[in-house]
C-alpha cells in the first residue's frame, strides 16, 4: 500500500509529526489539525445549549418555581428590609446553583460513568474547551429563570428594580463559580451517585445559606456561608437593592465569585483530564 493520504482539510493548519518512523517505514504521517480553544469552546457551548433545550427545559421550570415558591413562603415571615433582600437575592442565585452546580455535577458524573468522556478524549480538543463550553452553556441557561425570579421577588417584596442590571454580572460570575464547582464535583466523584449527591448537597447549601438572613446564624453556619461561593453572588445582588448601592463592595463580592470561578474551572479542567485518560 502506498503512504497514507493526508487527513488534512485545505485551509487548516498542518503540522508534521516530529517522530520519524523506523528505517523502512517511510516518514511519519502528518497529524490532523488540532481544535483550537475558542472554536472548540464555541462548538461545545452550542451543542450543550441545544442539549439543554431538549432535555432541560422542564428542570428549568422546576428551578424557577422552586425559587418563586420559596419567596412566596417567606413573605409570611419576612416583611421588607434586609431580610427581604436576602430572600430575593438568595432565591435568584438559587436558580443558578440548581442548574450550574447541581445539574452540571450530575451531567459530568453521568458522562464519566457512561463512557461519554471517551468521545471528547479521542478528539484533539483542549479539555478546557469542553469544561468551559459545558459550564458556559449551563450558566447561560440559568439566565431566564434567574431574571424572572429576581423581578417577581422585587415586585413581591416591593424592592427597587432599578439596579437589577447587576444580574448581568452576577449570573456569569456566580455561574462560573458554581458551574466550575459542579463540573469539578461531577468529574472527581468516584461514582455517579456521589456526583449527584454532591450536586444536591451543594444546592441545598446554597438554598439554606443563601435565602435565610445571615444576621441570625450561629458562628459555624455563618462560616460555612462565607465559604460557599454562591454567597458572594447573593451579597452582590442584595447590595444592589439599596437606593445608593456601594458599588465597590458589589465589585468586591463579584471579584470573589470571579476568583472562585477561575480556580474551580481550572480544577474542573484538571479533573477532566484526569478522568478522561485513566
Amino acid at each position: 500500500m502506498s503512504a497514507v493520504t493526508t487527513g488534512v482539510v485545505p485551509g487548516q493548519s498542518r503540522e508534521r509529526g516530529d517522530t520519524r518512523a523506523r528505517a523502512g517505514d517511510g516518514e511519519a504521517a502528518p497529524l490532523g489539525p488540532r481544535a483550537r480553544l475558542l472554536p472548540a469552546l464555541a462548538a461545545v457551548y452550542r451543542a450543550q445549549l441545544s442539549r439543554a433545550r431538549i432535555a432541560r427545559i422542564p428542570l428549568l421550570f422546576v428551578a424557577t418555581f422552586q425559587s418563586v415558591g420559596i419567596m412566596i413562603l417567606m413573605r409570611g415571615v419576612v416583611d421588607g428590609g434586609d431580610a427581604a433582600r436576602a430572600v430575593v437575592s438568595g432565591s435568584s442565585v438559587l436558580v443558578v446553583a440548581f442548574v450550574a452546580l447541581n445539574l452540571l455535577a450530575q451531567y459530568f458524573g453521568q458522562l464519566r460513568a457512561g463512557g461519554g468522556l471517551d468521545h471528547y478524549a479521542t478528539l484533539p480538543v483542549p479539555p478546557a474547551a469542553v469544561v468551559l463550553g459545558a459550564a458556559g452553556a449551563y450558566a447561560s441557561f440559568t439566565v431566564p429563570g434567574t431574571a424572572v425570579t429576581a423581578v417577581v421577588g422585587s415586585v413581591l417584596f416591593k424592592l427597587p428594580l432599578g439596579h437589577l442590571w447587576v444580574l448581568a454580572a452576577v449570573i456569569p460570575l456566580a455561574g462560573a463559580a458554581l458551574s466550575g464547582l459542579g463540573a469539578a464535583l461531577g468529574l472527581l466523584a468516584p461514582r455517579q451517585e456521589l456526583a449527584t449527591l454532591a450536586g444536591q448537597l451543594g444546592m441545598s447549601a446554597a438554598l439554606l445559606l443563601g435565602v435565610l438572613p445571615a444576621s441570625h446564624m450561629p458562628a459555624p453556619v455563618a462560616l460555612a456561608r462565607d465559604l460557599l461561593p454562591s454567597t458572594y453572588g447573593v451579597e452582590a445582588l442584595a447590595r444592589s437593592f439599596d437606593a445608593h448601592p456601594d458599588w465597590l463592595l458589589v465589585a468586591a463580592d463579584l471579584g470573589v465569585c470571579a476568583a472562585v470561578g477561575v480556580a474551580s474551572l481550572a480544577a474542573a479542567t484538571w479533573a477532566f483530564r484526569r478522568a478522561a485518560v485513566r
Binding site: V9, G11, Q12, G32, P33, R34, A35, R36, P39, A40, A42, A43, V44, R46, A47, H119, Y120, L123, P124, V125, A129
Partner: peptide
C-alpha cells in the same frame, strides 16, 4: 460538533 472538535472550521 464532532467535526468542529476535530479542528475543522
Amino acid at each position: 460538533t464532532t467535526g468542529r472538535l476535530r479542528g475543522l472550521d
